[in-house]
Design a binder for these strands. Structure first.
Lengths: 111, 111
DNA sequence: GTGGTTGTCCGCCAGGAGCGGAACCACGGT
DNA sequence: ACCGTGGTTCCGCTCCTGGCGGACAACCAC
């Protein structure tokens, strides 16, 4: 089979990132967008600050309930979080590692 | 504070689904769309069929590497998978549990 | 009954989730 | 130097679950 890769579409082939890495990256970005402190979100989520730090840095695999607790503490819906992460993953796939970080945060729900 | 909720936008308030549930649901839907067998995808992913069954039914929290192995076996990119799950979560949030399942599957990559 | 296919149940254990205490780092101020 | 703040890392710990293999279940055809 002929493998003709459209080079003008794929500049640099990024390996697939791991879920926990992109999740953590997005959670931190969201928190920072809100100007919240790590200890505050951790407390609101009912988890230890050490653990939230590790989640944000992609060092731990949080359970689904933990993900729910942190997104809840951030006031973010799972669907919006996933959409935002998806967008980020796709963007990095197309352009490679971001040089200038684009402000990324899911849409906040109006309470 | 005045809490004015636009009722015409929110018909029924669905509790947030768990990540492992929506992930598993989407993986199974994707596999079935492709007409693949569970044992084949499990083998290709290098995991046991029993385990893939449990992942698909939202019974287990797969590690990020496992998610990568399964998406790889399905020929699906993480970003596309996440986008599709996000769309599904948002759809269910807006309309409640789906009565008729809309065909849901991420876009397959052209090799 | 036989056989085949596909997927799920059950028990198991190695290792990781999640924790708390303590130390460390970076930065800013006095 | 000191202090404070916010975040990170290290460490040891307990508990529980990830991922597995053997067995089972459901379904179909002959």
């Amino acid at each position: 089979m002929a493998d003709i890769l459209p080079f003008h579409q794929e500049r640099t082939r990024e390996p697939e990132p791991l879920w926990r890495v992109v999740l953590g990256r997005n959670l931190r970005a969201t928190r920072e967008e809100q100007g919240s402190r790590l200890v505050d979100i951790a407390e609101r989520a009912g988890i230890s600050p050490q653990y939230l730090s590790e989640i944000e840095r992609g060092r731990k695999e949080p359970s689904s309930e933990m993900i729910a607790a942190v997104t809840g503490a951030l006031g973010v819906e799972l669907g919006d979080l996933l959409a935002d992460i998806a967008g980020e993953v796709r963007r990095r796939r197309a352009t490679g590692p971001a040089v200038g970080r684009r402000p990324a945060g899911p849409v906040l729900m109006a309470a």
